[in-house]
């Protein structure tokens, strides 16, 4: 375990150094923005609509009391979406999609000697392959999470309109009540940390693959599992550190 942690730190030290050619790095960064970020928009939006709707219906179901004001439902749904559902749940989904994608891509490159080819040419393969992935996700995943928050809240509003659990007006009033801007800051801090964990852990696991196609498959699964566990652990740590 300690050896793996040490290997991970060494790999990250190779990743974060000056790129061999900045023009090539910019091209690869743009490619990764599309490859990892842009292609994830669809899944994030679809999930967010339903998560927002379900969160609103669940809060309404659990606060079905005439003593509690209806706007509390909008407020609670917003807090759930902003503080936990969007940053954590969507990051877990992205750990599945991006984690397996990154680990299998790098693992395949490793077993087909493409990484060795880069190394013997004099290219720093860790920097060339992994840094654009990490940087693109550090920028793009927060954007996805902002989309997710907006669409999640919209999903809650749709649930109000379609199911009538509360009036859309009371939902909107609830959304605007007791708003703390730090909630968004908290969500973004979590998102950036999770983005780093997903990409760096998956890259490490993919980069270190030894063997053949079976090992690439195993690495892909391992990347998802380890990234997800890391997200949950850091979720607890960050929540404790920043909200109490």
């Amino acid at each position: 375990m300690l050896k793996k942690l040490g290997d991970y730190v060494i790999l990250m030290s190779q990743v974060f150094c000056k790129p061999d050619k900045s023009l090539i790095f910019r091209k690869r960064l743009l490619h990764e923005f599309y490859n990892l970020g842009f292609t994830s928009i669809g899944i994030v939006l679809i999930l967010s609509v339903f998560v927002g709707a379900v969160a609103t219906i669940l809060v309404a179901y659990n606060t079905d009391n005439p003593l509690l004001p209806e706007k509390l439902i909008g407020f609670s749904a917003r807090q759930m979406i902003v503080l936990e559902f969007s940053p954590t749940m969507i990051s877990l989904i992205l750990a599945g999609k991006l984690g397996s994608q990154i680990a299998s891509e790098l693992g395949t490159m490793r077993v087909t000697q493409q990484i060795d080819a880069l190394k013997v040419m004099g290219v720093n393969p860790a920097n060339y392959l992994i840094m654009p992935k990490i940087i693109s996700c550090l920028f793009f995943i927060p954007v996805l999470i902002v989309f997710s928050i907006v669409i999640g809240i919209l999903g809650g509003w749709l649930a109000c309109v379609l199911t009538g659990v509360i009036t859309p007006t009371n939902y909107v009033v609830g959304l605007r009540s007791w708003f703390e801007p730090f909630s968004l800051t908290f969500a973004m801090i979590k998102t950036v940390v999770f983005a780093f964990l997903i990409t760096s852990i998956s890259s490490y696991i993919g980069y270190e693959v030894k063997g053949g196609s079976v090992e690439v498959g195993k690495a892909s699964t391992k990347a998802v599992v380890v990234s997800s566990i890391a997200i949950i652990i850091f979720d607890l740590i960050l929540t404790q550190m920043l909200l109490t």
Binding site: I24, Q113, G122
Partner: peptide, 30 residues
């Protein structure tokens, strides 16, 4: 390393690139 050319057993061509990009890669980098 920049003065080396290596032919790997399986070729180790970059599968995300076409033939031209593969051959051009060392020129782009160095």
């Amino acid at each position: 390393r920049k003065e080396m050319g290596v032919l790997f057993q399986g070729g180790a061509l970059f599968d995300s690139m076409n033939v031209e990009e593969n051959v051009m890669f060392p020129l782009n980098m160095f």
